[in-house]
Nucleic acid binder design. Sequence first.
DNA 1: CTCATTCTGGACAGAACAATCCATAATATG
DNA 2: CATATTATGGATTGTTCTGTCCAGAATGAG
Lengths: 201, 201
Amino acid sequence: MARPKEFDQEKALRKAIRLFCQQGFAATSTDDLMRVMEVGRQSMYDTFSDKRALFLKALEVYVTESVHSINVELEKPGSALASVQNALMTFAQRKDLSSAEGCMGLNAITEFGQRDGDVTRISRNAARVLRQTLMRVLTRAKKQREIRSDADLESMADFFESTLAGIRMAAKAGQSRHALRNIAAFASRAYVASDRRTTPE
Amino acid sequence: MARPKEFDQEKALRKAIRLFCQQGFAATSTDDLMRVMEVGRQSMYDTFSDKRALFLKALEVYVTESVHSINVELEKPGSALASVQNALMTFAQRKDLSSAEGCMGLNAITEFGQRDGDVTRISRNAARVLRQTLMRVLTRAKKQREIRSDADLESMADFFESTLAGIRMAAKAGQSRHALRNIAAFASRAYVASDRRTTPE
DNA sequence: CTCATTCTGGACAGAACAATCCATAATATG
DNA sequence: CATATTATGGATTGTTCTGTCCAGAATGAG
């Protein structure tokens, strides 16, 4: 052991995450990162290897926590349907949703699509974890007859994820908090059991 | 008049749009653009001023056409509710939705947020046009009693736009065409009139 | 205290990038 | 045919960016 690091790796990573959320990968320079992370160039490279590795690490932490916070809502006891609907509403209230600070997961997907294997792997892993929880909760809702017995749960899960993305994009596009809540409330209606046919043929 | 241009400005712009759809602004170099547009550097600068101006022009054309194609579906005669639902389904079938080719509008918003005045202006203008059509159609649906009389149309419009964004993101994330259709079908259920309360309090 | 080890920051190298310059080619007009 | 005008592409410039180097500072271990 010798001289200890003068900066907090964890905090530096948080600041990097925030910047990547705002600007994405390509538009964020190493100088930008050094400035917000308050770390010297050499320290940054020593600790995080290079810009790409830092981005991937940041992405992994971000999406893992993001999925976890949604899963917590989904797994609350009580009505399964209410949990799903509540998860949407809680998400719409998240304080880190704003036009300035985007979702790093969506940023990564829009910026890299499926072209980057590492980015794809990280995104898919997180999506898989969310999907598992989601399917478990939806299955419970079906058993409890809160949703139609003939409902296609996979489609419901696709719709749920799509709604999350829609809310995030609306936030980034500058929509008001009020609008975000309304989107969540509205989407919630689609899950409810109904006797009549409600989808177009 | 003197020597005419050897390339088709229109086609070159289309190719630029496609590249920006795939890679966004920052990750697309002028060399990339030249290669794809099959135009010499000087010709590109003579015709489109610079990279940023080319991007803004491409964005304007893209979002204008994108909104127009949705508006066409929304304004089809017959049931207003069916038009809304059909617009979603038609959108989910669009051939330019794929994991490779993203939506340039979403790219621009994720990449620039609200920080770039020109990008914001172009996006907002297009959104305003879509919103006008949407409100007109939703109002008609309400008059025709296809949706609840106490429905909040502004919220419905927010939800519609959010659904479009969700579908686009799902496509970019690599979801199957089948999944996209299901998202559209599912979202459609939220618009339908219902006597019981379907939204959480 | 001494010293080996690690951290730090400024300087630096090499590549990529956006944009301009310039010489040449092509063509409408007179 | 002559010429003014515009298009083209290769060379070039100046900037920015990523990543490395190196000399000096700080600190734990002996």
